[in-house]
């Protein structure tokens, strides 16, 4: 199954079928999630209505981390097996992960101002998340700096794996240091500390965001496969043109000139 999917032509065929379904499902789940977030979930007894920011902030944070882990797994595929689809997966995941990390930081800042009295504090969780965004920026810059896709993939893979050190730091920063950011309250030993009336809309939004992220990733991979085909054909055309110029076609018979010059 995985070997079949790993064939780019097969991947294009299967992803072409799955993409509209995943995209449509993400839209439906997000609409349901937004309804639950705004019309069903109660305001928090301490944070009031600002808790509604959590329904976009937390899923965005999860996806920022999720896409980095996806890139790190693909980086192993690139370095160990040198599989072109692993390169494609890495490249497609980077802008999506960066965008969700940016959403997490901005929405967190907008949540922090009314609750903490400041948009930003150099807290371990916030700082490690900012470092994650900067790593994403470096990876995107490196992809654009090296033209040859295979060389770019190898360089980016190394950077991605080095940057993966930051992932456990983000996750456990609230446990390792005394932070202003609250500790883990959904995935923790002993179960979630969030009341179901707030937890259920959060999980629905998280599923909707994840489906959206997967749809965007599949779409990005399809585009990257096409981009590589275009690149290959463009090089092929250029080679043919060069060969044509180096060995021009033999000249035909001279035109018969009639009349006075």
């Amino acid at each position: 199954m995985i070997r079949e999917l790993a064939n780019p032509t097969r991947f294009m065929s299967l992803s072409g079928i799955a993409l509209p379904w995943i995209g449509g499902l993400s839209a439906v789940v997000l609409v349901v999630g937004l309804y639950l977030a705004f019309f069903v979930a109660p305001a928090d007894y301490q944070q009031g209505d600002t808790v509604r920011i959590m329904y976009v902030h937390v899923p965005a944070a999860w996806l920022g981390l999720f896409f980095y882990v996806t890139m790190a797994a693909s980086a192993v595929g690139s370095l160990v097996w040198r599989h072109p689809l692993a390169d494609v997966s890495q490249k497609a995941a980077a802008p999506i992960g960066a965008a969700f990390t940016l959403i997490c930081l901005v929405t967190g800042s907008l949540w922090g101002k009314p609750m903490w009295g400041t948009y930003w504090v150099w807290d371990a969780r916030l700082t490690s998340m900012l470092v994650l965004l900067l790593i994403y920026g470096g990876i995107l810059a490196l992809w654009n700096a090296i033209e040859e896709p295979n060389r770019a993939a190898r360089a980016v893979s190394i950077l991605t794996l080095v940057g993966a050190v930051n992932i456990p730091v983000v996750k456990f920063s609230v446990d390792w240091w005394n932070t202003l950011h609250q500790p883990a309250s959904v995935f923790r030993m002993g179960g979630s500390t969030i009341h179901p009336s707030i937890l259920v809309p959060l999980l629905v939004m998280a599923v909707g965001f994840t489906l959206l992220g997967v749809a965007l990733h599949l779409s990005g991979m399809r585009t990257e496969i096409l981009r590589r085909r275009v690149r290959t054909l463009t090089i092929l055309e250029a080679e043919r043109l060069d060969a044509g110029l180096a060995h021009p076609a033999p000249a035909g018979p001279a035109p018969i000139r009639t009349g006075a010059a």
């Binding site: 209505d49 600002t50 902030h57 965008a99 940016l102 901005v106 101002k113």
Partner: peptide, 16 residues
């Protein structure tokens, strides 16, 4: 808190 909530959802919608 409308400004902060609308801002958060607005930024999210814009980026998505």
């Amino acid at each position: 808190y409308t400004f902060f909530i609308a801002g958060a959802y607005g930024v999210t919608a814009f980026v998505v």
